[in-house]
Design a protein around this nucleic acid. Structure first.
Lengths: 309, 309
DNA sequence: TTTCCTTACGCCTATCGTAAGCATA
DNA sequence: TATGCTTACGATAGGCGTAAGGAAA
């Protein structure tokens, strides 16, 4: 019913040596069981593979054709074994990584580059999702890792009994984005007080829940209340609207990577301790073989990231 | 040491059903040995493939990766089996066919076309050789079939204990080739008598032994003795020299296929019973699976060939 | 007579099914 | 408590090595 690879291996050895004795020695066997192996294989295939007289062994046409298939088969078996071992050791295999649109500006490209160079066997599958989607996808095992923002503190990091663990990868200041011809632009920094009543572009609830909270904290602690004039989903849209003079915005420092012409990013005065955190998330207790190494790699990346910002 | 395909098959069944009971039923087994098969496989690979609690079965990353390899492996095994059977039945496989340069004009193309349409699984390997080389190559198993000329009668069709068998595929008249401005060209035929003393292009010993004998027979029985002015190897060279007026030549009727401008091919008068025979040759007792069918096909071709000449 | 593929025989290991064990929802 | 994966156990089948058989040079 199913080919026996031991028999196939025996046949290949005999076909290569054209001599049962030598082939048997190569396989640490006596000629007797080897002969029976080949016979059993021939019986299973319903056709002779070897033409043997007591003085010579030759391949039949069927044997010649089968030899090629057999070698491929044995190579395939060895390869399958290797693949399983490598994936188990975390040296290879697919890893599904979720990321938020904003993380694509700073951390993601560096992380991907580091993985490609340090763990070349890993086959990264990237999927852009907002934080909530990532948490759900992690729990449902549709993702192995996520680059995401902190959940609201009242949301338990647990979905259907699966706990999600987090580690902080980067803490970014928020910068004020304003058109380069804006009056506040003269000095190199802007006081929070001056933002009161200013038109502001903020985040839409979809995707920007975390930033909405962050902005609210900053404004509340400074006692100012800008006017929200527009809600958007993505940082680059936000900067584009700023450039058009629609309003001001607070964006994470990694937005510098967008290098938007006509928009200036200034630090706030006084400094606030509010930081936009970017987290790495994974299933707690996940036995994904590459996970530990990937996490170490990501944390190394975090240091680099801090040095560069 | 070597993967066991039965275990692999067991794993694939469980991986597809995610349930030992159903998978076992599919394999006509009880869950017990199936569980042991998967365990043995995991032990051989040195890593778990399945994550089983008593209520659910899931693939580990290594199992996920191995599943793909395993499916390929099982497909490969089934394919290897199929290939061996097909070659054994003569439905597929490589066949090495030798042919003489002259046979490429008439029989070979028709034979190749017939094989391609009637036995599409056959992978024809063509090799141009003169008759003696073909006989040697057949004996040495470097060829399976040969399109060749008769050996000299004193040469036994046996090389190193291997007898070569022959069957006649085509018997061709020899035609006189002469330039279209030659005086003998006026009538539609030429008497053998008129060839006495004429300049003649004949065959070089390499390659043309058979034709040399045939020409000698024809001229001797007619009591004429043309002058050999040039010896060549190939029919088309012969016709080219005829066109240049170097001399006359006797060529097999299939040379009409060359349609050489400026050269006329005329029958001899009186008709001689000398024919250029084209033979099919093979090892006597050869068990090549496709041989019998190929021989039948070639003999069918012979009939066609006679009708067309 | 030698070589070497094959068959016969006894031993041992492996795999099956039945039945009991045990964890989880 | 029911489901379902796993382990225990006895029977059988299959594979190994040793030794004898048999065909070809």
């Amino acid at each position: 019913m199913m080919l026996d690879l031991v028999q196939v291996q025996g046949f290949v050895a005999v076909a290569e040596e054209l001599h049962f004795g030598r082939a048997a020695r190569r396989l640490n066997l006596t000629p007797s069981p080897l002969s029976r192996q080949v016979q059993a294989l021939e019986h299973a295939l319903g056709t002779p593979l070897l033409d043997r007289s007591s003085r010579s062994v030759r391949l039949t046409p069927a044997g010649q054709a089968f030899l090629g298939e057999a070698r491929r088969l044995l190579d395939g078996a060895r390869n399958a074994e290797r693949v399983a071992r490598q994936v188990a050791r975390g040296e290879a295999g697919p890893v599904r990584l979720g990321y938020t649109a904003a993380s694509a500006l700073g951390v993601l490209p560096r992380l991907v580059a580091a993985i490609r160079s340090e763990m070349p066997g890993i086959d990264l599958v990237l999927e852009e999702m907002v934080t909530a989607e990532q948490v759900e996808a992690l729990a449902a095992r549709r993702l192995d890792l996520g680059l995401l923002r902190p959940l609201a503190p009242d949301l338990a990091p647990e979905v259907e009994g699966v706990r999600i663990a987090f580690a902080c990868l980067a803490r970014e200041r928020l910068l004020l984005a304003l058109p380069d011809d804006h009056p506040l632009c003269r000095r190199g920094h802007v006081s929070l007080r001056e933002l009161d009543g200013q038109p502001f572009i903020t985040w839409s609830p979809r995707g920007g829940t975390y930033f909405l909270g962050l902005l609210a904290n900053i404004f509340r602690s400074a006692g100012v209340a800008p006017r929200a004039v527009q809600r958007v989903n993505q940082t680059h849209t936000m900067l584009a609207l700023v450039r058009e003079g629609i309003g001001l915005a607070l964006v994470p420092e990694s937005a510098r990577a967008l290098r938007t012409e006509g928009v200036v990013l200034l630090p706030l005065r006084p400094e606030t301790d509010q930081r936009a955190e970017l987290l790495l998330g994974w299933r707690e207790g996940d036995n994904h073989p590459a996970l530990a190494r990937l996490r170490d790699l990501a944390l190394t990346q975090q240091v680099l990231s801090d040095q560069q910002t």
